[in-house]
Design a protein around this nucleic acid. Structure first.
Lengths: 143, 143
DNA sequence: TACATCTATATGTAATTAACATATAGTATA
DNA sequence: TATACTATATGTTAATTACATATAGATGTA
């Protein structure tokens, strides 16, 4: 996400020191949402995630498949095998009523998250507007 | 964050199953931002975090102190002891030029995160507008 | 037909990050 | 002199992600 960034180069901040591009447990709500649109299976859901504009280039298959199994174990989705179509058998997942409930809950949480990030960005832009983003350390302290 | 939520009750979703209120590594950029305003120390920074509208009620002292030591180890902040003021000695932190760089990098990352969350919410609202948020599972599948 | 490639699902393990618990100690106040 | 508050810090467990690898059917192609 930040590799090759101009800022990272400027301040000699290596990749490993950079803020991670993780979106904590964001795969789960995405899967729930996709399944709320229509039943689907792991491989296809992975492709949808790929086009979602994730920070990380590629979604991890492990995350997708394990999350789906977890959701089924907890009763948020149900699955059945599809051996009709071409290629290897697919495990088709469908969202249950509880699954819809979880999705709505996630949406509330994501709304909150977004607001917190927005608040940060408002304060940040306020603090640095007009500057060249290379402020000297502030002197003195609070109280 | 979701305990006591109407939705959670409605769908019998227990606390432990709920999406976590975590904001991955969000303490770090907040500390950097506060220090970009003025030098400060752990206990005071913790209080500022508290008022930031975090999903979790109280910030974890362990996170704050450990993050500050990490930032110093990596050269993003420098510290000195303050034994003048009342109460126990305080370790005052100041942001370095590299620290400012890291903050700007974080701001870029947070902007990206926010956009991803926004995208999710737009699609979600589009999908469920007008419904009572209790949709029956979709039938049929893709292709 | 043999081989590579694509589709599809799945698990094992290491690394990262957060959460919870606890220790230490100086200062203020009741 | 106990109690609460301020202040910093570390040890350990739990949660979550990242990376590696296994399996296997179907399809294309040399």
């Amino acid at each position: 996400m930040f590799e090759g960034s101009q800022l990272a180069k400027k301040y000699k901040i290596k990749k490993c020191e950079c803020p991670s591009g993780k979106m904590t447990r964001f795969v789960e709500p995405c899967l729930l949402f996709f399944l709320s649109q229509q039943a689907s299976y792991g491989y296809e859901l992975m492709a949808k995630l790929d086009g979602f504009g994730f920070p990380k280039a590629k979604p991890d298959p492990a995350m997708v498949y394990r999350t789906l199994r977890y959701l089924e174990k907890e009763g948020f989705v149900v699955s059945r095998w599809d051996i009709k179509g071409g290629g290897p058998a697919k495990r088709i997942y469908e969202l249950t009523a509880r699954g819809f409930g979880l999705l709505h809950l996630w949406a509330e949480g994501i709304e909150t998250r977004k607001k917190v990030l927005e608040k940060f960005l408002v304060l940040y832009k306020q603090r640095f507007k007009g500057t060249k983003k290379r402020m000297k350390p502030a002197v003195g302290r609070s109280r």
